[in-house]
């Protein structure tokens, strides 16, 4: 495992100044700095995202470990930014804010419908 960390150190050095995104969930107001937006986060090359999302380097792990946190994404329908918490959004192939999910609930498979109703009842 040792030689991985050496590799990572090198690749880390290559990351020059990085763009920061101000991520703010329209539903719960979670506000964080994201380091990347897209589907191929540069800090963790084995992971590819199906849907373009806001990604931050995991602040709870030491740097160079390739750990990330996907915070959320822009809703596929209304484009509002929402976080991945189940009170704020639903992921099904894309990320949807919950109000858009309610609005188009019939467009989702039944499995999703029951899941959404569960959350709705909980809230």
């Amino acid at each position: 495992m040792f030689f991985f960390s050496v590799k990572m150190a090198e690749s880390k050095a290559k990351e020059v100044t990085q763009v920061e995104y101000d991520f703010k969930c329209a539903s719960c107001n979670l506000n964080e700095k994201a380091h990347y937006k897209g589907t191929t986060p540069p800090f963790s090359r084995n992971v590819i995202l199906k849907y373009s999302s806001y990604v931050m380097k995991d602040p709870f792990s030491p740097p160079g470990k390739g750990e990330i946190i996907v915070l959320g994404a822009d809703c596929a329908i209304c484009k509002k930014t929402v976080c991945i918490s189940k009170e704020c959004s639903l992921f099904y192939s894309k990320l949807f804010c919950l109000s858009c999910v309610y609005d188009s609930i019939d467009k989702f498979p039944v499995e999703i419908k029951s899941k959404v109703m569960q959350v709705k009842n909980a809230i």
Partner: peptide, 22 residues
Amino acid sequence: LNDIDVPIQFSKFHCINFNTQI
């Protein structure tokens, strides 16, 4: 896919944003 571009047939893996490429 349907008109909002999501798969019609449900799969658990559609609920996951991650795809691992090793």
